[in-house]
Design a protein around this nucleic acid. Sequence first.
DNA 1: GAGAGTGTTGTAAC
DNA 2: GGTTACAACACTCT
Length: 286
Amino acid sequence: MPELPEVETIRQDLRAVLRKKKITAVTVRKPRMVVGSPRKLVVTLRGNTITEIDRRAKLLIFHLQRGDHFLLLHLKMTGQLIYRSPRTTIAGGHGWPPVGPDLPNKYSHLIITFADRGQLFFNDLRQFGYVELVTREHKEMITKTYGIEPLTPEFTWPAFREAVRPRTAPLKQVLLNQAVIAGLGNIYVDEVCFYAKVRPQRRAHRLTHAELKQLYRGCNHIIQQAIKHRGTTFSDYRDTQGRRGNYWRRLKVYGRAGKPCRRCATALQKTMVAGRGTTYCPQCQP
DNA sequence: GAGAGTGTTGTAAC
DNA sequence: GGTTACAACACTCT
């Protein structure tokens, strides 16, 4: 499940390889995954050039040279963006390192081909992801709905405290709320709560100053570490070369229900909070 | 082989 | 508004 660290890893990798590349062809195999007119998307992209790749929360934003349009792309739960360089594309993937399964596959719902014959494949097993061509105004309207963005200068301790403190909902729900903190998902919320030694069920407005501070530290620390290790692959996530993320080895609670806590060896418990599977240590997180 | 579980986000309903 | 439920979908696991 791509969350902020996974989407950021993809953004950085794609930026290095797609910037200034001219699009020569766009194949929409699953029109449902295009918000708006697939035809207009194809016509606008063809012959256009990608000038920059941005990210807001889990949303990728491709800047285009011609026309005041932006391409928004959301991976939702099972989306993948795999890039094949001209060599691997033309050679049919016989190179080294191994390039993974043949592409396109049955989940490749959108394919963008560049002038140098490189190709970008948008794969999505569950088809929840989408692409959308928007105007600058529309893009700004959408990005405005997100809360404070980790890793940016606006993600300060006072901003975090004021965003979280007044909320009466369970902490888990508050941290998952993209309008409060942008980019956290189920995996990293559980990890941040463990880091801060706070039970995810706790109501945000009942947290102490010290607990909030630890949560703030946790957001920064966990996200930075996860990006450093190129994200978490639990099932479907792959980077732009089809490789797994390495942070899963470092997960303390997510996916470890019933296993011993790495801090105190107590069996980790799994429950439902805000409709999501939630794992925590009953000993370390009172 | 049926049914539950997986989790993002928008939307609907309380 | 806070909160909950659900739908979009397809695959794995029980």
